[in-house]
Design a protein around this nucleic acid. Structure first.
Lengths: 193, 193
DNA sequence: TATCTTTGCTAACGAACGTTAGTTTAAACA
DNA sequence: TGTTTAAACTAACGTTCGTTAGCAAAGATA
């Protein structure tokens, strides 16, 4: 969907995602946002309630995408290695296909106020727990090395959540391609066997 | 060195590191900073030139630490695997021992103005090149899998630069300990061999 | 065409921003 | 002790902030 066919409200959300990512939430003024769209700052308020509402929408929409994509690829039948791979590739695809929103999700969530802030943290913790369980199952099945589950989960998410710092979705590598390569990297490591 | 024995200027830098990390550079006001120290905002300017000078000092001091620690552990004699391990553990130690400054270095550098911004990017690129070369040597020596060097470097730094999002230097795990474990993770991967 | 609703505008509010000027206090030194 | 210097203070500057009020234009509906 090109940007011209979006409703103004959707357009505001999309441009806000991009500006919040590039400049940060606090350093992005409503006048910056309005100017990027081509209207006056006050006109934004015909479509949105507040600046923070924009941040909330961005953070919780992409959070829902993470959950949805995870649930879609976890049918519960596969072995631990494959289930972990599916989770990693699902997460990677969501990030790589939504670079602006993901960046905001990873870096700007702290500017949420209560009660959104607590809700955000709760959802994130629940999502992280799913990956911890996958790691635990892999270790118990003897497929993964005996690493600390919580520690490994943090390293995995560090790797995945850094994607927006370097990946450009410009056709050179598709989201699906980097998803598979990142899964290989996490599972196999750098060393040749 | 406890915070009481610091010069006021060093104290300002230290508190600024912490606030810039916790709230972000733009969301941290000079009044916030002054209040955390226990003086008035205007009094800060007896010791510093500007808010941006604080950011510059933080970013370039930790950048120098990265280079220094890298150079210290690279004597050039070791094999590719060990040289890579030394680079990773050196980087990790600097991050884990300077969580506030590292966070600012990773996340707030974009608020630098020219010419500091270009200088920052140049230094970072030079540092990243050292890791790319280590990866290239490891692949050519047949020790590392044949991955894209630039891609692997990005994944490595994503893993390392995410440390401040989860690590607390509270004695449970020392910087040296996580450095070794992270190096294992990057080299060996999750799968049991 | 007449009416209603949506979407934009200009103007402005009160608050917070980084920073400067000018002054007072405290510390260091003669 | 008297003098100099460093480091704090109060007050305020011009700017920008998110947001609101009130009004005009444009589009949809009757």
């Amino acid at each position: 969907m090109s940007i011209e066919t979006l409703s103004r409200k959707d357009q505001i959300n999309q441009v806000a995602q991009n500006l919040f990512r590039e400049k940060g939430y606090s350093a992005t003024s409503m006048r910056d946002l309005a100017k990027a769209i081509g209207i006056e700052a006050a006109s934004l308020y015909s479509h949105i309630k507040s600046k923070e509402e924009l941040l909330q929408n961005i953070c919780f929409r992409i959070a829902a995408e993470f959950f949805d994509e995870y649930d879609r690829v976890q049918n519960g039948n596969a072995d631990p290695k494959l289930r972990f791979r599916h989770a990693v590739t699902a997460h990677t695809r969501v990030v790589a296909s939504n670079l602006d929103a993901s960046s905001v999700f990873f870096n700007e969530w702290r500017h949420l106020n209560e009660p959104s802030l607590s809700e955000f943290k709760a959802q994130r913790a629940a999502y992280e727990d799913r990956f911890k369980n996958l790691l635990k199952e892999g270790i118990e099945a003897g497929v993964f090395r005996k690493v600390q589950v919580s520690f490994a989960m943090r390293l995995v998410f560090s790797t995945l959540n850094g994607i927006p710092t370097w990946y450009r979705n410009d056709g050179a590598l598709s989201p699906d391609q980097i998803a598979e390569q990142i899964a290989d990297f996490l599972l196999e490591g750098l060393l040749k066997k």
